[in-house]
Amino acid sequence: MVELSAKTPCADLLPLTVGALTLSEVAPTVMTTLSPYEGCRDALSAALEARYGLRWPKPNRSTAKAGVRLLWFGRDMALLSGAAPDRGLSDHAALVDQSDGWAVVQLSGAGAEDALARLCPVDLRPSVFKRGHTARCDLRHMMASITRLGPASFQIMVFRSMAETLVEDVKTAMEAVAARG
């Protein structure tokens, strides 16, 4: 019997600490994109609420409960993470397994916003980009998903294949912040 072993996108690259900032890989979990079919969004939202207690997220927002997160992921698309999708959801939406498609990291520590300000052209001020807020934007030259997890903590997602560039770019920004003291 063949046995395949798993490797996470940032396995050899993280964690990393520079000054007050730490970049670490988020433990892998099931991730599924949900794209509701024509006219099915309300039914999908109700099914999600019944199953996970989470409603369909508005654009640029995410909701989380008991380790399950529903993240706005683009036009008519949300990413369900932390739980395998209920089969019944496929009545309302196209479900696509993306558990292996993305490198998912967390940037934490005082100055996390300053580091991201060197990478992303979006307004991440705490008054504007609050906990649970999310954006699809570029991170340097990569298309990313950025979500605020806490006062000084962000989740960053880019394509799995770009993990090395992601770590390099964020590290450079972390060093720039640290060098300013």
């Binding site: 196209a94 498609g101 993305w102």
Partner: peptide, 12 residues
């Protein structure tokens, strides 16, 4: 049309 597309290049 009722059809949904997503890239799975990175997934596989």
């Amino acid at each position: 049309w009722n059809v949904r597309i997503s890239s799975v290049t990175e997934q596989w």
